[in-house]
Design a protein around this nucleic acid. Structure first.
Lengths: 359, 359
DNA sequence: GCATATCACGCAATCGATTGCGCGCAAGAC
DNA sequence: GTCTTGCGCGCAATCGATTGCGTGATATGC
């Protein structure tokens, strides 16, 4: 009765574990010791050119691939960075991650990711691997920081941890690469003021997050500079999601009175806001101007295209990975950085219709 | 001259390498051997309850964390999956990745990611780690498959590799979890037909990709079913990006004649198309109906909201990770799966204005 | 009371790469 | 011809966890 030859024991393991050659295999092929193979491939100087070539040829022909775990175990470093991300569905973070991935690769690092929003257990567990050599460093992209990491940093340890994308309080001890959130927000509001708007509201993010506070502060700064009143009713508690924007829009419509302009804490909430306003027949920017913060891909194709702040995601990704690398490897140490932002002016923030009632 | 105390030799290493305890440390604390610690923590049966408790308490108090690399080296498995992704800026993929991450975590796996679009070298290098134990399996999310992997699969090896999100040709040997692309596309076009549209064009993706071919085939199938002519001018060569959609719109405007409806190969190109059409004063769906494919977050807030196919990203993520896990660990083996899709009907595909000239 | 079975645990090898130390050999110095 | 110098390379330990095998102690059988 015909039967597949290797069908007896764990056949799938068989095929996968057609184990790739190890250093000892290459050593045998090249007629040298494993130490010599290691030193040859590492390019160390104490190997003769002749031997090196023989070893490299053997490695080439055998298709030798180094074993990451053996190397990491021995060296106590993994060449892997952990990126902690709150929400990949948010293009802001996914685009950042893409740039981090590229930058890390170019610097010789791989990355693992961990979501901080869904389960609380996972990121902490992953972060703990910083102490066992499982990962070499951590890139924080939100305000969240694993408990054990934070406590050690507060105790003065200088851990290879860098935060980017999200603002970091000065003196927190966490290395950071960020934009000047307050000035960026102020720039948006200054632009709205320059376009003739006076009653400028702010759809704020959750005040539990530092980033929300800073953008609100920027809004206040610009208003104060222009001598415009803040007015209690102009600070609109909202959030960063589509639904938050929609909810605010509904509240405004129900209240029956609209400000001249609304500066939204981010693009996504601005989309929700505008969608709901348009549904009620409000024209943008004729009846009300809107601006956001982030510059997502779709901000340019929204109707109307959204005025916003372009977050320098690529620049932040590259700078933060480089920063982290230097913290890990020592040597010339960089410093915390402020990356320049850019105001992107599109139609949504236009001067509005002349018929609009101005105070 | 005052100086920081530990400023002499590699101080940063010092603080990080306050090495966390190893199994040997725990063994010493608990007064047993390392083997016993290992077996206790693994829950093996040959350890007395008393000893197990003592070991666990010691591990707890010392804050013991297992060393991933040592374990992986010994076991020849890493509990890490590699996810190959073409473009994280595309929400379709970032959302999928988020769900993969969650699903993998729940099954005890971590994930590493590799972009396949930017550099060709990286994914291949990462994929090679499948043979050295660096990773346990690979999740493909696009048509791309690393050369070495593909050749081995074609030679009959059963590697732990699963493709999802992107269609896979039957008989290619690659395990897959996908939707029925042809039927999904046909469903969209059937809906357009039901809404009274007759001249239905297709903004196609790049024909080098299987997914583009299949969606085009679905479009053809629905037209044929309804006895509608395909017409050479109705197949619009495009692409999957915003700019591709915009370009097609400009060509249509320039040609001066519009079809009744356009089925776009994906949502992003639909956004580009609609944006450019609207800029020229074309009303959607009054003058022309549009439908897409993907159901991105912003499809619902676009003006008008976009009719599209919801890709079951969460379901595909969970099914493909589970599939991969089973391929890795053996046991009951799953099979290739077709996940149901869902047509999401919104305003963009409406019946159009009665004044429109119908043939 | 002695032999065997059973249970709980330790010894030591192993996974694959790296590296301090030292050995052998050849060239150069005298 | 002997001694020194140094280059090229191998030996063996190491990183931390796992596991087959074996050992000592206790329990059970008769």
């Amino acid at each position: 009765m015909p039967r597949k030859p290797q069908d007896e024991n764990t056949p799938s393991k068989e095929s996968v574990r057609a184990r790739s050659p190890t250093m000892a295999d290459i050593a045998r092929l090249a007629g040298v010791s494993a130490s010599t193979v290691s030193r040859s491939l590492a390019g160390l100087p104490e190997i003769s050119e002749e031997t090196r070539i023989r070893v490299e040829r053997a490695a080439q022909e055998a298709g030798y691939k180094i074993n990451r775990h053996a190397r990491s175990l021995r060296l106590q470093r993994s060449a892997i960075l952990l990126v902690l991300i709150p929400d990949l569905a948010n293009q802001n973070y996914s685009d950042l991650l893409m740039n981090i991935d590229r930058a890390a690769f170019e610097l010789g690092y791989g990355i693992m990711i961990g979501h901080t929003n869904v389960d609380l257990e996972r990121p902490d567990r992953l972060a703990d691997e910083l102490f066992t050599g499982g990962i070499d460093g951590i890139l924080l992209t939100s305000g969240y920081c694993p408990a054990r990491i934070r406590s050690r940093i507060e105790n003065g340890s200088r851990l290879p941890v860098v935060r980017t994308m999200s603002p970091t309080e000065a003196g927190s001890g966490i290395a950071s690469v960020q934009i000047d959130e307050v000035e960026a927000a102020a720039d948006v509001v200054r632009h709205l003021i320059a376009n003739g708007h006076r009653r400028i509201a702010h759809l704020a993010g959750p005040m539990t997050e530092l980033v929300s506070q800073l953008r609100r502060d920027g809004w206040r700064r610009a208003l104060a500079e222009a001598g415009l009143p803040e007015g209690q009713d102009l600070l609109l508690p909202g959030g960063f999601h589509l639904e938050d924007g929609k909810a605010v829009a509904r509240r405004l419509i129900a209240a029956g009175t609209l400000p001249d302009a609304i500066f939204c804490g981010n693009d996504e909430s601005a989309f929700g806001l505008m969608t709901e306003l348009k549904r009620s027949g409000v024209r943008i920017p004729n009846d009300i101007a809107v601006a956001g913060f982030d510059d997502l891909t779709f901000s340019q194709v929204f109707d109307p295209p959204l005025t916003t702040v372009r977050l320098p995601r690529r620049e932040m990704a590259e700078a933060s990975v480089l920063y982290l690398k230097q913290m890990i490897e020592g040597g010339a140490s960089l410093e915390d950085q402020i990356v320049p932002h850019e105001l992107i002016i599109r139609e949504s923030s236009g001067p509005g219709s002349p018929h609009r009632d101005r105070s």
